[in-house]
Amino acid sequence: MTRALSWILSLTALASLVLLVGVFTWQSSVIWQRDGIAYVTGHSWFYRQQQFGAFSLLYGSIVVSSMALLLAGPLGLGAALFIAEYLPQKTRLVLKSLIELLAGIPSVVYGLLGILLLRGWVYETFERFEPLSGDTLLTAGILLAIMLLPTVVSLSEDALRAVPASQRRAARALGLTRAETIWSVCLPQARRGITSAFLLALGRSLGETVAIFLVVGRQDNNVPHSWLSPAPLLQAGQTLTSKLGGAETNIAYGDPLHWSAIMGLGLILLILTGAATLLGTVRRERNA
């Protein structure tokens, strides 16, 4: 019974995922037929001229998410180590539930805080690079990092706690220090779980919309002149989600070509977040 039910439910989940991707593919078919891969690699998005190059949006999403992960990853892992390995049980539980509470704060609140606190700070801190305003890809990245922290901390901490206490005890009994034990026992054994935490956080960051929307500047066609050039970071930009969350989506609905270009962005987003989340979940399951 349980077996059959779990099969039915798994298949339902899989079917709805396939259906979702199918709908987005179908809805975006017009733009794929017209531009092919150039739709993804094209640098210009001017809908009035019927130019739909999604590259700057993809770039924006990837840059903002990687920045967020780069900041939140080490910081979050450090916090998780501290909580899992150094804090006494009671404090650990209190802190952990507080951190999980943070994960539940609506993202629009983070966005508002971003406008209130972060925008000005970025503008002033990087003044000598002459940003036009505090609404930049960097601002969005930092804000997103703050939003990801609870996820990274909580999931990494779970991964560390999943390492049996007997392993730590055996290492300590050999005379290893706490730091040596963490380094040679806890981290290697929690590695899968920690990378899974990072992937799930990445999935979340790629899909995050409102908070980014409020601080990213929503400037189309911000693309670096050369790869790895940091210049665009201090300019206003646009991510897949901030684009999709904007007014243009409603304008596009009447025009089959424009609409399919918008739905194409949705498809790319779906694939990116889906891949990160799926990969993360699979690793997490295997770790457990």
Binding site: S166, Q167, R172, A173, L174, G175
Partner: peptide, 16 residues
């Protein structure tokens, strides 16, 4: 001290 006083547990604890 723990390097000078070794220990063996009830259940063998093997590192992976």
């Amino acid at each position: 001290i723990r390097t000078r006083i070794g220990m063996l547990f009830q259940q063998p604890v093997i590192f992976p």
